[in-house]
Nucleic acid binder design. Sequence first.
DNA 1: CTGAAAGCGCTAACAC
DNA 2: GTGTTAGCGCTTTCAG
Lengths: 336, 336
Amino acid sequence: MAATIRDITKMTGLSLATVSKYLNGGNVLPKNRLAIEHAIEVLHYEVNEVARGLATNRTKTVGVLIQKLDNVFASTIIAKIEDMLRARDYGTIVCDCRGDEKLEEEAIRFLLGKRVDGIITIPTSRSSAYLQSAIQRGTPLVLIDRAFDDGSFDSVYVDNAEASREAVRLLIEKGHKKIAIICGDEGYYTARGRLEGYFQAMARADLPVYAKYIKKGDLEVSHGYNAIRELMEMEDRPTAVFLSNYEITMGAVIAMNETGIRFPEDVSVIGFDNLLLSQVIRPRLYMVVQPMEEIAQAAAKLMLERLAGKDPDREKEPKQILLHTSILEGESVRAL
Amino acid sequence: MAATIRDITKMTGLSLATVSKYLNGGNVLPKNRLAIEHAIEVLHYEVNEVARGLATNRTKTVGVLIQKLDNVFASTIIAKIEDMLRARDYGTIVCDCRGDEKLEEEAIRFLLGKRVDGIITIPTSRSSAYLQSAIQRGTPLVLIDRAFDDGSFDSVYVDNAEASREAVRLLIEKGHKKIAIICGDEGYYTARGRLEGYFQAMARADLPVYAKYIKKGDLEVSHGYNAIRELMEMEDRPTAVFLSNYEITMGAVIAMNETGIRFPEDVSVIGFDNLLLSQVIRPRLYMVVQPMEEIAQAAAKLMLERLAGKDPDREKEPKQILLHTSILEGESVRAL
DNA sequence: CTGAAAGCGCTAACAC
DNA sequence: GTGTTAGCGCTTTCAG
């Protein structure tokens, strides 16, 4: 069995309270401090955070609930968050709900059972219902990548409409008129914004929008794969395609490679999110990139603030942090 | 405040022991069971795992300590592990030590402080010293990707020499003689095996080995990037290069794209580990692929077994699980 | 600054 | 099958 605080008291002759005070940074007579430190050394004592958690009702642990751990966006963000949290002595317990709403709700209960001090999540579900139990418990919540419509949560996300608008605008500036978009369907929060940006850009340039050029579907590699092929098989095919998400970009690139569709010769494309790909794919892809570091940092910071806050912080307004994407230049867009 | 077991006793008139027994799956009179379930429902009761952890001395949490969370190998493995553990009601607390030995040791203490029931780790350090504190506590340990030389740990890893040997053999069979390898230096466990496999394959084919064709360095993108350029600038350059790790493969591909070195026309290459790249890069890369799913699964399974085991399991021999890589065919190797 | 004592929420003998 | 009673290891008043 590991040494306990009690072993320290025995060895030093001091009381529980004194040792505990030392452990928590309180003032102790130099003589006693030395004695305690010596005992800790000898006994290899380490605070039992579980016991401390029971006593303080704070576990120094935050839950991170995500759709897919094995995806660049998620893992980059988690890596950064974990780093920042641990620097402040918080542990990170991760849950991957694999895009399943049921698992997502279970994960929340699971985390709550573990009494995490807060939860950072990239929501899967369309509704915020699954968060109710956390709200009731008063567990601080920070959402990433989306806000719910009632705006009642701390959240960190990017301006999706703007991101999309800028990408499409770039295509328009290069002389494209027949511009397609491959995107998620309206069930996805991010997809809604990106679709909206597409419409905005087209409208501002006074270009007509054709339904056949709008390929909605799941945010999966297969959707990108299929959609680009369908687009390229049309008799009146688009001259440019905006691949409005990471998986879609992957799928489209794979399909183009397989079928010998060349970019930008056969079609101009702008992808989304994968910096790695942009370095490695030739010709280089134009990409809309999200500020992942900033997103993670903002989320961790927000959480840390809530965690440090006094009780009345519950009353503080939820903070919505809106960040902006940028466009990484490549060679995948041709001027017409 | 959340409801406690005590609230349940008050509401049902039953005792602590009975309710606790119910909670832990014991037998209770149907009438009482109903009463308890009703109370749980009404009070939104959820077991406080922290308190339970204190009482049982088991937290139902395992630590996963890794070098870089935001890397395909690590995140794929964690995703799978997390999935399997949670299915058995274990939480996963992750720590990323960013390849830093000091942080790695701190992370172990951190996890131990949180009283995780076990630790799964992809070691960074060359020595197993940092694991001592865990060993002393008797915390089950499972290593991934490497074993320490004394063979005294449960570990799951692949046959690196074989992986490398097969890759080089393939190149030799295609008629290559001047074969280079870009790899990590001997400080890395995996690099040692892969280098050994290279030597074995060359020796078996009775081919001479030239020091200039062996590019050792850090397991970083930059090493792959620089090394391939150096190799290609030699007057007597190799006709084939084995890129013996994920980052190295990335770097080499980037460099080749930038400098216009074509594969397999200018040089034949076999990469390592990145399935994603192999789909997306054109021409397709030959790749040595590790069975990530199996690795993760074996590690989680091993851990779960240790966790379920009775005390005497300490005496059981450490298990070393050796898995095998395979070669994914591509178009990046030319027959000479 | 230090000590005594109560208690965080749960489990686990041990009696009944 | 159920109740009683101790703790698990720590923090935290409250006195002194």
